[in-house]
Amino acid sequence: MDDAGFTKCERCGQPIYEKDLLTRFNVCPHCEFHFPLPAPERIRLLTDSGSFEERDRGMTAGDPLGFEGYEERLSRARMNTGLSDAVVSGVGKIGGRPVALAVMDFRFIGGSMGSVVGERVARTIELASAEGLPLVAVSASGGARMYEGVYSLMQLAKTSVALTRYIEGSLPYVSVLTDPTFGGVTASFATAADVIIAEPGARIGFAGARVIEQTTRERLPEGFQTAEFQRDHGMVDRIVHRLALKGDLERLLGFVA
C-alpha cells in the first residue's frame, strides 16, 4: 500500500482505493480477489457488532526448545500484528446466535500452529461443549510451527482429542478455510468438521505446490489446491464469497444449531 491511499490488486493489477478495500474486507472491487484478512477484521466481519468477547488473550508462547531465532520472530510478530499469537478465540454472536469462535491470522509467523494455537483451539472446543455452543473455526496457516519442534506436531493430536469429545454431542462444528491453509492445520482440526466452507480461490492442501513440484517433478494442473479444486474433489462443502460469509453461516446455524 502506498501513501496515496491506493494499492494494486495482486490478481487483476487494477488500482484499488484502500478505503474501498477496507469496507470490502480486503476483497478487490474489480475482480473479487480475496486478500488475506487479519483476525480482528474477520471477527468484525462475522460477529454481531460489539458481541465478541475474547478469551485466553494473555496466553503467550514459550520457547520449549530454545530454538535459534524464535524469540525474535515472536516479538516481531507481536509488534507487527498487535496479537499475542496466530489465533484469536472467544465467544461472539452470529445473527443473534452465540458461537465459540477461533480465527487464525496468517500474519503471525505464517499462521503457524504452536502450543498457544493448539491450546486456544482446544479451549475453544471445550468452551463450546461446556456452554452448549456451535463451534466455528476460521483457518489461515502454513502448518505447524517448526520453532516448537515436536511440541507443534503434538498440537495436531491435542486439537484432535479435544474434537472427539465435542463431536460426541449434537452441536455443529463449522470450519472455514481461507487462503492459505496447509500442513498441520488441515491435517487436524480444520478438516474434521461437520461442514467445511472455503473462500473463493483460497489455496488449501497438505503439502504446498512448490514442495510437490520439487519432490515429484510433476507438472501441477491449473487451479491445483484451490478451494474450487478441493470442492470438485469432494473435500469442501461450499465456496462462499467473503462478503456473503456471515449470512451463509446464519443460514447454516439456523438448520443445525
Binding site: G58, M59, T60, G62, S115, E148, A157, V161
Partner: peptide, 13 residues
C-alpha cells in the same frame, strides 16, 4: 495429548 504444550498461563476467563 491434551496436556502437551508450553505456554505462559494467561487469563483463563
Amino acid at each position: 495429548y491434551r496436556r502437551i504444550g508450553t505456554h505462559a498461563a494467561g487469563d483463563t476467563g
